[in-house]
Structures are given as structure tokens and as C-alpha cells.
Nucleic acid binder design. Structure first.
Lengths: 339, 339
DNA sequence: TTGAAAGCGGTACCAG
DNA sequence: CTGGTACCGCTTTCAA
């Protein structure tokens, strides 16, 4: 690899001049600029970003911590950050964190070793306290999909409770009364919040959900199938189900159909997330859109801002919460028994 | 940020000793090790990876160049590389390259500036010549989804032609005779190869494809819909379609059904890629599985190997080609008119 | 077993 | 406008 010294020597100037040319520094003669650029071209010189980062003490890297990349949801998140990174001439350093506190800690540490100052992190396992102290250490750290009151101006999150409410109101509008819910035992608070919002709204409308019509399962297609099976086996009547996520919803629908129920003819189903498959499944899934890419973009931009005006690290007064949006497709219909 | 000097000063030893402790260097007394580790813990010292990379001249980063992250196909590719990276205690540096030669060039350059030695690149726009010279400059560069004879030992690619042949043979087995093909105008060779393999096999079987039953469209769902529309409008009979990719296949199926054709009742459809939606669409799609994550893993491993034993950069004699695998689902059936 | 010192490839300040 | 030079934080001889 050629270095700045090689360029200087061959061009017959000092390394200081070469450095100025590289950085469009002030006060360089056109002649020098031309000569240096020519030499750089000829010998195929590429400045060493590590050396640069070392001396300038700044990184043009934006770090992303997510559990894994193979899940389309997290891929969208990373993609959103990437777009903002590109707009700011930065690059994505990815740190996959798995599902444990220890590995989340390891993932963020790798980023810190690289002196990465801008970070968008999806953390579900690290305790609040640790994240709060981390946030002090790294001004450009933004949490996505997590709300911690003490550092809420560094958090971008979805209002899961509101999502549950929206689903409930829609079912009520459609005249459904026997309403079920498939939630999850996934070790994060999201399912609980969604279910709470849902149940609260039904209760307020004077039609509280029957606890026996709430069932829990793993947050994937198989889980959805098993849950639907249990709902059917219970013998209780129901004409609508609010499901924790799209994959489970699709699983539930296939089990319902296998058992002679038509969707949405006999049962209406609402999913959550609006991942790609929601648009391709049959019937196409009515679901709550989770604007993750948009959220990721805002998170990245916020992180960049925090790094730039460290002074104004004061709470951006506004709350960074997003609302899911109901996308009406084909898996819901008004309750025929009441039409 | 604290530095190695701080640690040395506080621990009362030289920075050389601290360095030895950090790197499990030889010949350090237990006492020193203990003391240094303790101090590092206390002051929360994190070694600077940039400084390290600078002096050791080696990078623990594995670079990935892909057009974009929001496409699940490329997300899977990146995910495969990430898994190998983790197994080797390395990290993913992502460089999205868009769809032009210039931006592909820019993307790889960013990686080179960081002195990234291990790179998995998906390049469709850069000319062979440029890639070949790049390959000389960067021993750890591996090309994925591209075959260049001169550096074939650095290429991992899918045998698209074989995929076309497999699809053709399957249709023949199912007794189809009026066979159509929806290909693409996408500016890469993949569609051409797939179509060639397909057409060749049919011709060899004495049932050459009718050129009028070959149509081209953009490689997305809308393209598939438009193409199917044209096929129907042609008035020509057909009972099977080989489609360039899954998204187009799904688009084609919906248009067929909208026009009163049943799939697979009246028309059988084979897609390509086996992306997630192929399993969720109705009918579930028969398609050719593209083992991209597996390929990406091998590419990453190959790249790492090339960096390690630079000596053995000699052609790994074996050819790194992968075969797509037919996944039979519900969109194909034997031709009823001949049963 | 330990420490001093010479860089790795740049940047940026200071003189000239 | 240009060159000399003191670092950035760390690894790695070379002596002690």
C-alpha cells in the first residue's frame, strides 16, 4: 500500500501539502493541487481511514446494533440507517447482538473499540441502568424500539399500546363482539403493551375481552397455528382475532381455514408489523403498519445531530414516539351475524 | 476516552506491559497481569481499534458490497457473511452500492480506505477488467453471483442455466406442452441464462418453445402482472409458465386468477429464488431455491482463507458453482388435458 | 520480566 | 503558499 509519503516524494512536495490537497485545505497553489492529484492517480493512492480516524479523533462510521440481519424487520431497520449514513457520507458498521444481555454488551463494545460515535441500537436485554450510563458515555447513542424515561430524548419507539387500541376500535366498528387475542410469551414488553391497549379499549366500550379467549404462543407461524388450534378447541365462539404479529396471524389463518373457518367470512384477523408477507399472503392481511425504516432513519439522524452539537445534547423537547397505522386489507370484514 | 497511557500510569507500569496484557503477550508476571486488568476495569478502558489496525496493518473487518439492504435477497447475503464474520471474531462493514458502475466503485473504495482486506462483493456493473485488477490488489476479495473466468477461484456463483433446465425438465415430466416464459430486461445476464437453459432443454426434447410465448418485463410483481396480461391477450394456449423470479411469478398468478385461470388447475407456474414470500403466497409457489445465504457463507470463508494463506492464493482447483434446487409446492400440477 | 523508543499513516500548528 | 514537526494510541523490537 502506498502512503502519503510516497505521494509527497514522487510529487516533490511535503506531506503537509499532500494532506492539504486531500482535504481541500486552504492556501494551496493550483500547480501543487494538480501535480499531487496526478501522482495520487498514477500510483493508485488511497488514504488510510484508520490513520485519519486516529488523529482527527472522529469516526465516519455509524454503528448499528440489532439481534440479527436475517429477520426482514431488522434488515429494514438497518436499511433505514444506511440511507441516512449515505446521505451523510458515512458507512454502516454492523454489530449483530443475538438475544442475550452479554452478547448485546459485546456488540456495543466492538463499536466503542472502533471509537464509533454515532450508534443506533436495538436493545431488549440490557437493563435500563446500563443503557443510561452508556448514553452518558456516548452522546451519539440512540435507542430504537425502547423507551427509557430518563433518556427519552434519545429514544425512538413505537406506541404499542395505541396499536392495540386501534385494532380494538376497528373490530368494534365492524360489529364484532366475540373477540379473541393471540399474544406472545416473547420476553419483551411489546406483546403486553399491545394486548393491554386492546383489552383496555374493549373494556371501556363495555365489551371486555373474555380471558379464556386470550392465548399465548411463540411469535412465529407455528406459534400462531398452535394458538388458533387452542382457540378452536376451547369451543368458545369468536368472530375476530387480534394477533401479536403477522407471522403468527398467517399461521392462525391457515389453521382456521384447515378447520373449515373462512377468513374473513367467519373470522376476521388483524396482524401487526406489516412485513412483506402481509401483502402476499391470501387473504392479504389487515395489519398495523410498523414504520420501522422511517423510524430508523429518524434515529440515525438524531444520533448524528447529537454528535455534532454535543452542546445541545439537552432534551429535544419533543417525544420521539411513532404511531402504528391500520392497513385494511382482506382478512377483516364486518360481522355478518350483525349486518 | 482513556488511553493505554492512563492505564500504564495508574497501574504503575510501562505502556509496553499494558499492551502485553491486552494481547496475552508472552512473559508477563501474574502480578502485572492482575494489576493491569484491574485498572482497565476500574477506569473503563477500551482499546482503540483504529490505532491497533494502523500499527498491525491488519483489519478485523469483513466488507460487504451489495446494491441495497432493503431487498431481502441481499439481506440474506449480508446475513450469511455476518455469521462467518462472527465465527471469526470479525465485524461487518457494509457498503451499499446502488446500481451503477460509479457507485460500485465508490463502495469498494470506501472499504479500501479502511484497509479492509476481506471483502465479499456483489458487483453487476463494473467491467471484468476492473474486477480482475482489483482482485490482484486485494487478495481477500471474493465475487459473489458473478463468474469471471480469469479469476474463477475467487468467484461464487449460481448456475442459472442449470436452473432453467431443471424447470424445463419438470414441466416436461408434468406433460406440459404449451409452455410460456416470462423473462426480464433487467440489465444483468441472469435472466438470459435462465431462459437459455430453459429453452435449450425444451428444444432438445423436441418441443421448442414458441417465441411468441416468451415475454419480458420488469423484475417485480407489477412486471409479472403486465407480462401475464400480455400472454393472455396473445390468445395463444399455454398451460405452464417459467417466470424469472418469485415476485414476478406472484404477480403473474394474481393476474391469471383475475382472468379466470386457476393456478395450478389451468396453468402451472414455476418461480425462481425461493424468497420468503414464496412460502406464504397462495398457492404456495413452486420455485427454484437460490441458496444465497449458504453461498455467502462460503464466499466469506473463502475470502478469509485467501487473506490468511496469501501464499496459497493459487486457484483452489474446485469450481465454486452452486446449483439451484427445485422446491415443489402448490403452483404446479401435471397437465390435466393429458392425464 | 520490564521499559524505552521507533514507528504505523495522517493532521494541523507554526515558521518561514 | 509551503515545509518541518509534534503528536493520535498502540505494537513491537531491543536492551537492560
Amino acid at each position: 500500500m502506498t502512503t502519503i509519503k510516497d505521494v509527497a516524494r514522487i510529487a516533490g512536495v511535503s506531506i503537509a501539502s499532500v494532506s492539504r490537497v486531500i482535504n481541500n485545505g486552504p492556501k494551496v497553489s493550483q500547480a501543487t493541487i494538480k501535480k499531487v492529484n496526478q501522482v495520487m492517480q498514477e500510483i493508485g493512492y488511497t488514504p488510510n481511514a484508520n490513520a485519519r480516524a486516529l488523529v482527527t479523533r472522529k469516526s465516519i462510521t455509524i454503528g448499528v446494533v440489532i439481534p440479527e440481519l436475517s429477520d426482514p424487520f431488522f434488515a429494514s431497520l438497518a436499511s433505514g440507517v444506511d440511507k441516512v449514513a449515505r446521505d451523510n457520507a458515512m458507512q454502516l458498521l454492523l454489530s449483530t447482538a443475538g438475544q442475550s444481555a452479554a452478547s448485546e454488551r459485546a456488540a456495543i463494545n466492538l463499536l466503542l473499540e472502533r471509537r464509533c460515535q454515532t450508534i443506533v441500537m436495538h436493545s431488549k436485554k440490557l437493563p435500563d441502568s446500563e443503557l443510561i450510563s452508556l448514553s452518558k458515555q456516548v452522546p451519539g447513542l440512540v435507542l430504537i424500539n425502547r423507551y427509557i424515561a430518563a433518556i427519552k430524548h434519545k429514544c425512538i419507539w413505537l406506541d404499542n399500546t395505541a396499536g392495540g387500541k386501534i385494532a380494538a376500535r376497528y373490530f368494534l366498528t365492524l360489529q364484532h363482539h366475540n373477540i379473541a387475542c393471540i399474544s406472545s410469551k416473547y420476553q419483551i414488553e411489546d406483546p403486553t403493551l399491545r394486548l393491554n391497549g386492546f383489552a383496555t379499549t374493549l373494556a371501556e366500550a363495555g365489551a371486555p375481552i373474555d380471558p379464556q379467549l386470550i392465548t399465548y404462543a411463540l411469535p412465529d407461524q407455528q406459534g400462531g397455528e398452535a394458538a388458533a388450534q387452542r382457540l378452536i378447541a376451547s369451543g368458545l365462539p369468536f368472530s375476530a382475532i387480534f394477533v401479536y404479529n403477522d407471522a403468527m396471524a398467517i399461521g392462525a389463518i391457515s389453521t382456521l381455514e384447515d378447520n373449515g373457518y373462512s377468513v374473513p367470512g367467519d373470522v376476521s384477523v388483524i396482524g401487526f408489523d406489516d412485513v412483506l408477507i402481509a401483502r402476499y399472503s391470501r387473504p392479504r392481511l389487515t395489519t398495523l403498519h410498523y414504520p420501522i425504516e422511517e423510524m430508523a432513519q429518524q434515529a440515525a439522524q438524531l444520533a448524528i445531530n447529537c454528535v455534532n452539537d454535543e452542546a445541545i445534547t439537552a432534551p429535544h423537547s419533543d417525544s420521539h414516539s411513532y404511531l402504528p397505522r391500520l392497513v385494511k386489507r382482506e382478512s377483516t370484514r364486518s360481522n355478518s351475524r350483525h349486518v
